[in-house]
């Protein structure tokens, strides 16, 4: 099955491991990821702070490229990119004043009016709905039995639910279902849908780090050994940035954070190194007998 694929800047940059792992498991699952032609940054979470119309235009450009490639869906591994494209398309449809501005911009760039022909989707939605949990389970060569994984959703994947549309914003279970498929034990925790604080890193880092720490602590308090999340930017915030959190809160523990396809990749038999994981995660998994 071919899927239009929007990697997003982070997964082609310092969250490269998100892309690495996603590409690996996609191949195993016979998903052919067709990278969106000449895609651009969606500006998710920031460009709409500068200028809503520019933001919407940038996102619609990607969606038009997907349409030209002949697809009506675009999958991304990044919740922020997902949210960005979905909210932009929603505003374009429902805000006539914004639409007028956007249409002019698209025209200036010799592009057409967007006809809402492409649905943005999260890569995990494709996994659950199109590939199927059972099918994923069949590919598991190394069940991660006994490992307790905090299942984190974050904000952008779920909210606003009337725009995102895949699952309940308060009682989601997509990540849990995927974690269960790997044989690991999913652990729900109170702050599973709270924000990791990444968007505040560019303006108010102390509070951003506090929020990240809240997530990690909440997962740990419920007995998680590791955390799994669905977002390239959560990955930046919860993986390497943990060093900063440790310093700020003088903490002596770490909770290794994996991107969801990294965990699935592990169960498919790939090594932590092949999946591009950070040293902290590699070391922890080694201590649990996984390498």
């Amino acid at each position: 099955m071919k899927v239009a694929y929007y990697p997003g800047c982070a997964s082609h940059g310092i969250a490269k491991d998100v892309d690495i792992a996603t590409q690996l498991i996609a191949k195993d699952l016979d998903l052919e990821l067709m990278e969106v032609d000449d895609w651009n940054c969606c500006g998710g979470g920031f460009m709409d702070d500068k200028n809503e119309a520019v933001h919407a235009s940038l996102n619609l450009r990607n969606l038009e490229k997907v349409e030209k490639m002949g697809y009506d869906k675009m999958a991304t591994p990044c919740s922020v990119c997902l949210n960005s494209h979905k909210v932009a398309a929603d505003k374009y449809e429902n805000d006539p004043v914004l639409k007028e501005d956007v249409d002019q911009r698209l025209k200036d760039a010799n592009m057409e009016e967007y006809d809402n022909g492409v649905e943005s989707e999260h890569f995990i939605w494709v996994l659950i709905r199109d590939v199927g949990i059972e099918n994923i389970r069949k590919h598991v060569k190394r069940p991660l039995t006994g490992i307790k994984i905090g299942t984190y959703y974050g904000c952008q994947l779920l909210r606003p639910s009337n725009v995102m549309g895949f699952e309940s914003a308060f009682n989601p279970h997509s990540v849990m279902d995927l974690v269960a498929a790997t044989g690991a034990t999913p652990v729900a925790f109170p702050m599973k849908t709270a924000c990791c604080g990444f968007p505040l890193m560019g303006s108010n880092p102390p509070v951003a780090l506090k929020m990240a720490n809240n997530i990690l602590s909440s997962a740990r308090n419920e007995g998680s050994e590791m955390l799994v999340h669905p977002c390239s930017l959560c990955h930046l915030q919860l993986d390497v940035t943990q060093d900063k959190i440790q310093r700020q809160f003088k903490q002596d523990w770490r909770l290794p954070a994996l991107y969801i396809t990294q965990l699935i990749g592990l169960s498919f038999g790939y090594t932590p190194k092949q999946l591009g994981m950070s040293k902290g995660s590699i070391e922890y998994l080694r201590s649990r007998g996984i390498s």
């Binding site: 940059g13 310092i14 490269k16 000449d38 911009r105 200036d108 060093d243 950070s278 040293k279 590699i282």
Partner: peptide, 26 residues
């Protein structure tokens, strides 16, 4: 320390049709 420093040098290609981007961002 995390072993991810190499990703800081990941160099993705720029958008080819930068005119489209520039005109949209006017």
């Amino acid at each position: 320390k995390s072993g991810k420093f190499k990703y800081a040098f990941e160099k993705d290609s720029n958008v080819k049709n930068m005119n489209e981007i520039k005109n949209m961002m006017g």
